[in-house]
């Protein structure tokens, strides 16, 4: 077993276990905190896949930004002094059917695909390639997204002023 295998299984375990807790826990704040570990595990897997930039962005945007805001929101809007922020389960039967179908389809696809392995070296940094691609080939998309985000920011600011 290679060291990267160990690391992979570690991250996979973190991701899956915390994701499991996210859906099973009845406490919203806890769920939010466990989601943090899920994101973190996913970021680790990105690194192993050679997508280091995506991994760091995952960390900065999801863990450092969105999730913190989420927790903030949950904390502010609820009666935080008591720990009884609970969620319930509803529509168990339709959900079970839906999830069952989805699992079946995914399982079937996984089993029926012919997987083949490519041996690679230790992944190298994707950063400069990514940068060049963003500025050259995808510059329009990049700029459009930038403008979209700017508009969203201005909108949020103007809404917050009201």
């Amino acid at each position: 077993m290679n060291i990267y295998d160990i690391i992979f299984y570690l991250f996979a375990a973190v991701t899956l276990l915390s994701a499991f807790f996210v859906v099973t826990t009845r406490n919203i704040v806890r769920a939010a905190f466990f989601l943090l570990f899920t994101f973190f595990g996913v970021a680790g897997i990105y690194v192993l896949l050679g997508a280091d930039f995506v991994a760091i962005v995952q960390l900065i945007v999801y863990v450092g930004g969105i999730l913190i805001l989420l927790i903030f929101g949950v904390m502010i809007t609820n009666k935080i002094t008591q720990v009884d922020i609970k969620t319930g389960t509803i529509h168990t039967l339709p959900a079970a059917i839906g999830v069952g179908l989805f699992t079946g389809v995914i399982g079937a696809v996984i089993l029926n695909t012919e997987w083949f392995e490519i041996k690679t070296d230790i992944p190298v940094s994707t950063l400069s390639t990514l940068g060049r691609m963003l500025i050259n080939e995808y510059v329009l998309v990049f700029e459009l997204l930038g403008i979209l985000l700017l508009v969203a920011l201005i909108g949020a600011a103007s809404m917050a002023r009201k």
Binding site: F53, V63, G64, L67, M75, I80
Partner: peptide, 30 residues
């Protein structure tokens, strides 16, 4: 010698924030 060194540091610092928020909430103290 990670290429993204400095951004990596900024990224993992996010975990400190999460730890602080977690401590504050879990303590159940205003």
């Amino acid at each position: 010698k990670i290429d993204l060194g400095i951004i990596f540091i900024v990224g993992v610092t996010g975990l400190v924030v999460a730890g602080i928020l977690m401590a504050g909430w879990a303590s159940n103290n205003k």
